[in-house]
Nucleic acid binder design. Structure first.
Lengths: 126, 126
DNA sequence: TAACTATATGAGTATATGTTCATACACTAT
DNA sequence: ATAGTGTATGAACATATACTCATATAGTTA
């Protein structure tokens, strides 16, 4: 591995917002709006952090309907993967992470409720 | 662990010069001049990077005669130690690291030769 | 004490970074 | 096609960073 790549990866992790994004994505894939709601920061800001993580190869993305979903990317390069995995493993027990996971669950529940409501509404027309 | 501390530790690693310092110190303790000679950067710059690593708790230092020696510090906090150890483990196979180790050995040999020469010179007065 | 060696630090500069605001772009649904 | 939803990006700003040069400080040796 080149030192430049190692530095880029480490820099990717060296920010509160990105650390929290990485933690959340290590649990499950999420779209920009969900991350925006959980983290409280502006949509613009979240999007830029995601772009940076994507360019570094830490996360990948794909579109699903309206939304762009992000997930932790598995690098082909063995050394890159090793470094990323090692850092994530070393980051356990961050207190704020637990709070974010709680928020994540709240958001997901609200989404489910919203979808159910929509379906009921749609059914009214049947 | 607090996210601030995690960020500080990760930032400490997110720089080429500091990465190389950490790699060298993970092999053996070294003083400022030795690091300065191996890495080629200015003494002032090396000293500042070491100060930063010291403040973050990644390295420790002690004086021995003329010199201040630095070494990888073992943090008391288990989570801190886990993170630092994980990153160092993940950083294996960095190409430039091997070159630095070669330089390290050269410097150490030159030091030994210099000391021998000094002793011989001193003996001439006997 | 004075000269010397090793290390640390302040000033100054160029560059990078994180953030917000506004707006452009991509896609969907009516 | 047009309105609406979700995402990305450019401009602007404040702050942080890495570096060099010069100088101060700490400790050693003659």
């Amino acid at each position: 591995m080149r030192i430049k790549k190692a530095r880029q990866i480490l820099r990717s992790f060296a920010d509160d917002t990105r650390l929290r994004i990485i933690n959340l994505l290590s649990k499950q894939e999420l779209n920009v709006t969900e991350l925006h709601k959980i983290l409280g920061s502006s949509q613009s800001n979240i999007s830029k952090h995601l772009a940076r993580l994507r360019l570094t190869g830490v996360v990948g993305d794909f579109r699903k309907g309206f939304n762009v979903y992000y997930h932790i990317y598995e690098p082909e390069n063995r050394a890159h993967k090793k470094l990323i995995t090692a850092i994530i493993a070393g980051l356990s027990e961050l207190k704020i992470f637990k709070k974010d996971i709680v928020k994540l669950n709240v958001i997901k529940k609200l989404e489910k409720a919203r979808i159910k409501g929509k379906k009921r509404k749609e059914n009214e027309y049947v």
